[in-house]
């Protein structure tokens, strides 16, 4: 694919020492299981506040699995459970008293394929606040969310139209607006651009830079250039095959994006980003 010099790298000055980072999530020795199968092993990460953290790696390395732990979407899969800890600020996300529904209110998610509800554009954005019993002026809230998602100008005259009439890129921005409307602190993005054309992708990437001012963003992507362009930190995952022939995802390297793409400390990371593997 590409060799290193062709990769554009966003180079914001993010602190490298864990101490100076203001973590929203602290992941400690996280392993994710589906029944008896250990899909991902021993992940340690710190997710910085108002930073964009990218998770990259080959297919089946468990990056989406890890992402779905942050808003407890894995709970929906029968048999899925974790070992280890994810701290959200100082609270254990998987503590006994934690309600996954409350978690999902604070930690929004955007999916790989745009999945607007088959309803009016307005109702899509208003849905989150409504189910959460928010009684504020809904019109303002919808406008605010659509504006933040850079979609307002395109849809302000057709709010009553069905969301499925929008283009793929617009649908995805609508899904971002829908997530923002609940006022989350974190937005998880699971390959948000993989179903979109390059122009729509650019718009979403620009939008992420805007959103970064206010939200903490985690993005899983197959596109290394995208990780390099948008993220502050990058986590590289890969899959190992153990002695019994079973694949387990693991985190190889987690560092500032600049370092991952210029001076990776692990050979496997280097091979992956230079296109020799994956």
């Amino acid at each position: 694919m590409t060799s290193q010099p062709n990769v554009t790298i966003r180079g914001p000055e993010v602190p490298n020492t864990p101490g100076s980072l203001d973590p929203v999530f602290t992941v400690e020795d996280l392993s994710v299981f589906y029944g008896d199968y250990e899909a991902v092993r021993n992940v340690d990460m710190l997710i910085g506040r108002r930073e964009i953290t990218a998770m990259i790696g080959p297919s089946g390395c468990g990056k989406s699995t890890v992402l779905r732990c942050f808003n407890r979407m894995n709970d929906l899969i029968p048999g899925a459970h974790i070992k280890g800890k994810i701290l959200y600020h100082d609270e254990n996300l998987y503590g006994d008293h934690v309600d996954p529904i409350e978690v999902r209110r604070r930690i929004g998610m955007v999916f790989q394929k745009p999945n607007p509800f088959p309803k009016a554009i307005y109702d899509n954005v208003a849905y989150g606040p409504r189910v959460n019993g928010i009684k504020r002026n809904m019109d303002d809230l919808v406008e605010e969310a659509l504006t933040k998602a850079a979609l307002w100008d395109e849809v302000k005259d057709k709010l009553k139209q069905n969301a499925l009439s929008l283009s793929g890129g617009q649908q995805q921005r609508l899904c971002i607006a829908r997530a923002i409307a609940v006022k989350p602190e974190v937005i998880l993005m699971d390959e948000p651009c993989s179903a979109l054309d390059p122009i729509a992708t650019t718009k979403i990437e620009d939008l992420m830079q805007e959103l970064r001012q206010e939200y903490t963003i985690l993005i899983v992507t197959h596109n290394m250039q995208q990780a390099a362009r948008v993220s502050d930190r990058t986590a590289f995952f890969t899959a190992d095959v153990d002695s019994a022939g079973v694949r387990h995802g693991r985190l190889v390297e987690f560092d500032q994006t600049t370092r991952i793409f210029t001076k990776p400390s692990d050979k496997r990371t280097e091979d992956y980003i230079t296109g020799r593997f994956g």
Binding site: N71, M73, L76, I101, E102, R104, R105, G108, M109, F111, K113, N115, P116, F117, P118, Y127, G128, V131, N132, C175, R178, A179, V182
Partner: peptide, 23 residues
């Protein structure tokens, strides 16, 4: 009904019953 609709609803903090009833 595609599972993505259910996921989208649940990810916004809707309860399972809200997801069923409204989506």
């Amino acid at each position: 009904v595609p599972p993505s609709i259910r996921e989208g609803s649940l990810a916004l903090g809707a309860t399972q019953w809200q997801t069923i009833w409204r989506q």
